[in-house]
Amino acid sequence: MSDVKVLVLLGSLRKESVNRQLAELATEVAPEGVTLELFDRLGELPFYNEDEDGDDVAEPVRALRAVAADADATLVVTPEYNGSIPGVLKNAIDWLSRPFGNSALKDKPAVVIGSSLGQYGGVWAHDETRKSFGVAGPAVIEDVKLSIPSATFDGKHPRENSEVAGSVREAIEKLVAEVG
C-alpha cells in the first residue's frame, strides 16, 4: 500500500475526552503506510461567515484547508451534543465546504466514528455528520458505522478494549481502501 494521509477531525475540544482517546487509538492501529494527522485547532476557527471567506481568510481556516487539501481521506471522531453535531465540528465542515463544489475534500473518502453517553453512542450525531459532510463534498462511506456507548470503556482508555481497537482499525482500513 502506498502512503496515505488521513486528516482527523475531532468533535470534542476536551483534552481528556474519550473521542480524543479514540483518535489516539486510530493513530496507533492504523495500517502500515497510513499516516493520521489530527487537526487540533477547531476551537480557533471563527464562525463561518461568507463575508469573511475570501483571499484574506483567518489563518486557522487557511491551515485547516491546507491540511485538508494535502489529505487523501478524512476520519471524523465525534461525540453527540444534545442529539446532534458539536458546534466546532459543524463549523469546520462549513469552512471545508467552500468554495462550494470545489472544496479541499471534494470526492475524498470520509468516515465518521465516535463515542457518546447513552446506549446508542452518538448515532444521531454521526448520522448528521455524515449527512452534512456528504453535502459539503467528501465521499462519505455510509456503511462504516462505529458509534460506541462511552460506558463500554468503564473509565479505561479505548486501547484497552481489543474489540474496539479492532473495530477502529477496520474502519480505517475501509476508509483507506476507498482512496483513489
Rank of each mutant, 00 (worst) to 15 (best):
M1W: 04
K5R: 01
L13A: 15
R14S: 14
R14I: 15
E16R: 00
A23C: 07
A23Q: 01
E24Q: 09
L25R: 00
A26C: 09
A26F: 07
E28T: 12
A30W: 04
A30P: 06
G33Q: 09
L38M: 12
G43Q: 15
G43E: 15
E44D: 15
L45S: 06
F47T: 08
V57P: 02
E59A: 13
P60L: 04
P60D: 09
A66G: 03
A66N: 04
V67P: 00
A69L: 05
A71P: 01
T74A: 09
P79F: 02
E80K: 03
Y81I: 03
Y81M: 02
N82F: 07
V88S: 13
V88W: 12
N91S: 14
I93M: 12
R98F: 09
P99V: 15
D107L: 07
K108Q: 06
A110C: 09
G114R: 01
L117V: 13
G118H: 01
G118R: 07
Q119L: 14
Y120S: 12
G121A: 14
R130P: 01
S132L: 14
F133A: 03
V135C: 10
G137C: 10
G137D: 10
V140K: 00
I141D: 01
E142R: 05
V144T: 15
S147C: 10
S147Y: 06
P149Y: 04
P149R: 08
S150R: 02
S150C: 10
S150M: 11
T152D: 09
G155T: 13
G155A: 11
K156C: 15
H157S: 13
P158D: 02
N161L: 12
S162V: 00
E163L: 13
E163R: 13
E163P: 00
V164I: 13
A165N: 04
G166N: 06
E173V: 09
E173P: 01
K174E: 04
K174W: 03
